[in-house]
Nucleic acid binder design. Structure first.
Length: 114
DNA sequence: ACAATGACTGAAT
DNA sequence: AATTCAGCCATTG
C-alpha cells in the first residue's frame, strides 16, 4: 500500500468499530454520524473493506446496515463467515438478518459520549 | 482530470 | 408498506 495520504477517516472508523462490545452490533450510518460525516456511510463500508489487513484487528462483522442485515457478508473469507462470527458472540442471525436488532444495537454517539 | 463504483441512507413515489 | 431515486465522497479505472 502507498503511504497514507489521508488515512485519518479510515483510522477513525477502525477505532470506533474496535470499541463495539462483543455481542453488540452497530451500523455504517451510526458510525459515520459519530465521526461527523453523517452522509459518508458508504465510506465506512469502504473502510471495512480495507480493514482486513489492519492491526490491531477490526471486528467488521459487527457492522451492519441500518436494517440489521449482513449486507457485507460477501466480503468475508466465506459466505457464512460473518454470520458464524456473530453467532459465536451470541448474536442470533436468521436469513441474513440480526435478531433483536434494537436491543443489541450499539450507537457510538449514544453509548460513547466524550 | 473525468467518470464510474460501492459492505449506505433518507426522502420521495 | 414496499420500491425507487438521488445524494453522498473516497477510491479506482
Amino acid at each position: 500500500m502507498h503511504p497514507n495520504p489521508k488515512p485519518d477517516f479510515f483510522e477513525q472508523v477502525f477505532q470506533v468499530v474496535r470499541l463495539i462490545p462483543v455481542g453488540r452490533i452497530s451500523t455504517y450510518g451510526a458510525i459515520a454520524r459519530y465521526l461527523g460525516s453523517a452522509q459518508s456511510a458508504r465510506m465506512v463500508g469502504w473502510a471495512m473493506n480495507a480493514s482486513h489487513s489492519v492491526h490491531p484487528p477490526v471486528p467488521a462483522h459487527r457492522v451492519l446496515n441500518r436494517n440489521g442485515c449482513l449486507s457485507g457478508k460477501m466480503h468475508f473469507a466465506g459466505p457464512q463467515a460473518m454470520q458464524s462470527r456473530l453467532e459465536e458472540e451470541g448474536v442470533m442471525v436468521v436469513d441474513d438478518q440480526v435478531q433483536n436488532f434494537d436491543r443489541i444495537f450499539w450507537d457510538p454517539s449514544m453509548e460513547l459520549l466524550l
